[in-house]
């Protein structure tokens, strides 16, 4: 790949500036490059984020989470098509897990989205989680912010969909759709642990299959037993992403939540939490980076070895690292 950016500091021009200019004029390849820069923490990524940040906060960001195979990608394709019909420019960010052993990833969400591949107003990006837990990649919010700043109207974020602790999407999305399917049986109880609480809209997908009524009833019962997180009760929407049935209702439910969030102050609360989360994440990254730079990787490795060998405890290790000058 060409990396006019890697050299970076030619003259006063900030690295990434030219790419950003081209991305702003609608060049998709430049958008794709910028996303990689941000994902890889390439030189110039921070400068790009600094430039675009004031222009973020305009897009409608919809998260889609839920167990694997539930139809998230198929649903995202349908939602995307529906927002495109409304005239919005749409982006999809679909996260899949990276192997903790090899770092590799098989990103297969596009298989369900092929009808949109050649739509000029739709941008799809597959993203590997790269070791980040919580259902997203470390860079997902930054990439969403970039797409937002570039004038994307609706951004659909599909989470990894393997764990129960995939709650980070709430930091990125204005509205979170939790996708379930009929026939989960008692497994639906497992959703209670954290995931149900982040849902703004509950989707019973694959409603073309038997058992949808029961699932809707179970979910309604669980909601009524819940603490009642807020004054907003998540609607339960039945869809068949395969046939397209229920998609209009889902789009309406998302819009309704969005209106409520803007009216009730929920949006501001979420934005505060998101800003706090992002600042803390960046602080951690930056502090660790600086510490490594000051202490040296060898010294860190040495301390790690001593902790592993029990000749040093982790608390003293931290003191030692922080007091190194």
């Amino acid at each position: 790949m060409t990396h006019e950016l890697l050299g970076g500091s030619r003259g006063a021009e900030p690295p990434g500036g030219r790419l950003l200019e081209r991305a702003r004029s609608g060049d998709k390849r430049s958008v794709a490059r910028l996303i990689s820069m941000i994902e890889n923490d390439e030189p110039g990524a921070a400068a790009v984020m600094r430039t675009v940040y004031p222009e973020t906060g305009k897009a409608a960001i919809v998260g889609v989470t839920g167990p694997p195979g539930g139809g998230k990608s198929t649903l995202v394709a349908r939602l995307g098509a529906s927002y495109r019909e409304q005239g919005a420019r749409v982006a999809v960010v679909a996260v899949d897990p990276s192997s903790p052993f090899t770092g590799g990833a098989l990103l297969g969400d596009r298989i369900r989205m092929r009808d949109g591949f050649l739509d000029d107003g739709l941008f799809i990006r597959s993203m590997a989680s790269r070791g980040h837990s919580g259902g997203l990649a470390r860079a997902t919010l930054r990439v969403v912010n970039l797409l937002d700043a570039l004038g994307t109207g609706v951004i659909l974020v599909e989470t990894v969909g393997v764990g129960q602790e995939e709650v980070e999407v709430v930091r990125v999305a204005d509205t979170v759709c939790l996708v379930t399917v009929p026939g989960l049986g008692d497994d639906i109880q497992a959703l209670k642990a954290g995931v149900l609480e982040i849902a703004d809209v509950l989707v019973v997908n694959k409603s073309d299959r038997p058992g949808a009524d029961e699932t809707v009833r179970d979910l309604a019962t669980m909601l009524s037993l819940g603490k009642g997180r807020l004054e907003f009760t998540p609607p339960i929407v039945r869809t068949s992403a395969q046939s397209g049935e229920g998609i209009a209702e889902l789009v309406a439910a998302i819009a309704k939540h969005r209106e409520w969030a803007a009216r009730s102050g929920e949006r501001e609360r979420r934005r505060l939490a998101a800003a706090r989360g992002e600042i803390e994440a960046l602080l951690r990254e930056e502090l660790v980076r600086r510490l490594r730079g000051r202490v040296g990787a060898d010294r860190v490795d040495d301390i790690v070895k001593r902790v592993a060998a029990r000749s040093l405890d982790p608390y003293t290790a931290i003191d030692e690292l922080l007091s190194t000058r």
């Binding site: 590799g104 297969g108 591949f117």
Partner: peptide, 18 residues
């Protein structure tokens, strides 16, 4: 993937444009 690459798989019947 097992060799550490990120593989975007798009499925069958893909046209050159896609």
């Amino acid at each position: 993937r097992d060799a550490g690459m990120e593989v975007i798989y798009t499925g069958v019947h893909q046209t050159p444009e896609q």
